[in-house]
Design a protein around this nucleic acid. Sequence first.
DNA 1: TAGATTGTTAATCGATTAACAATC
DNA 2: TAGATTGTTAATCGATTAACAATC
Lengths: 227, 227
Amino acid sequence: MVVRRSRRGEVMKKISEAVVRRLPVYLQVLSDLSKRDVQTVSSQELGNKLDLNPAQIRKDLAYFGEFGRKGIGYDVSYLIEKIRQILKLDQGLNVGLVGAGNLGRALCNYNTYLKDNMKITAVFDANPAMIGVAINSLVVMPMDQLKDIVVARNIRIGIITVPAAEAQNVADGFVEAGVEGILNFAPTILRVPEHVRIHYADFTTELLSLAYYLEKEGDETDEPVMD
Amino acid sequence: MVVRRSRRGEVMKKISEAVVRRLPVYLQVLSDLSKRDVQTVSSQELGNKLDLNPAQIRKDLAYFGEFGRKGIGYDVSYLIEKIRQILKLDQGLNVGLVGAGNLGRALCNYNTYLKDNMKITAVFDANPAMIGVAINSLVVMPMDQLKDIVVARNIRIGIITVPAAEAQNVADGFVEAGVEGILNFAPTILRVPEHVRIHYADFTTELLSLAYYLEKEGDETDEPVMD
DNA sequence: TAGATTGTTAATCGATTAACAATC
DNA sequence: TAGATTGTTAATCGATTAACAATC
């Protein structure tokens, strides 16, 4: 079995993607609780809110440390702080976006949504007509400045909101410029080197799979039967 | 074990969400192949393109029927047709959207992306200033018309693109109006009755979990070690 | 103390992968 | 026919859940 070790040599349990993907969800609920001045929360309560098994929540968190207190639960503020550290949100991450179309502009305006020290700090577009256009406090820049700006502003994450046909080119540009992660909104699969992480945010997948679960038009429900 | 049976009494294998979620991805790749006039494709080739195990692809498809030919592979056009049927994309599905903000408008303009017979056919907003505004061929309508329009236009899927704080109200409205599925873009968990399917398209989850995989600032890579 | 709740091990469940007979 | 590739069963792998000692 391949095992990672930290510099100090402790075995690092390989943490699955499913676990990592739940962390932002925990963060969301914890932020709500914090706003409502809740001090402490148990895995049971979190599980109720999220439709998740409490044991799973405890196990997820335990991968990263002992954040709870037996008999008490988790301190909301402390847990928020810890999860933010795990997700590197304590660092201040700069994000670049390519594709100043409708979706791209929406994301720029959402910049408050991307709170947590993550911020879109540069927007690019291939269309000459878009260059110089202001989106909030950002000004659209031409693609030939991508690399320079990414380096200059220490941009570590790239967002792609161009049509599918151009997405691979943009990804290549981001990779060459040295970003470490890419979030792709175009409905297409991209090839990037192993050292670059790529996540997909293609809502068409969610929308089309949603259709599967609709009742077939004019179909009666079939009865579940015990076997 | 709980088993579903069709009206004719055959046992219907319970199909996992993971399988259903891969179907739109297959569809996407198959569409590309079709555009390039490829007639036939093997699970091996599909697997290469998608970084998926060929056996998994064969198994996924076999849940729904025998679509391939031994020794030959899958006929691209036929498989597209079949997957479209499975996802009910052959039916013509009407979609309603609440929240004519930046993201909502982006999705309306994306209406071509939602090809495949799925179409946003009504847009609503709670803000009086937005009522009557044209987005493409759509005109923003007030919330008090939601139910009537959903019924009149046979809208079966609702999209939510309002701020998190209002999302639950909108969801309740959709449910009351009788939609069967909801796609929620707001970064919050919603409660809906069991008979309504809900999918989440919150990109903040993808973005925050992406940050986890960045190299820690100023950290050397740890070496994988065999155990 | 008694009750609550964590962190963690063991048991279960389900999903992915390998292997192969069937067959084009 | 020989080679290729499916559909499917069996084996493996990994993720979720249950259970419980530790302890607040």
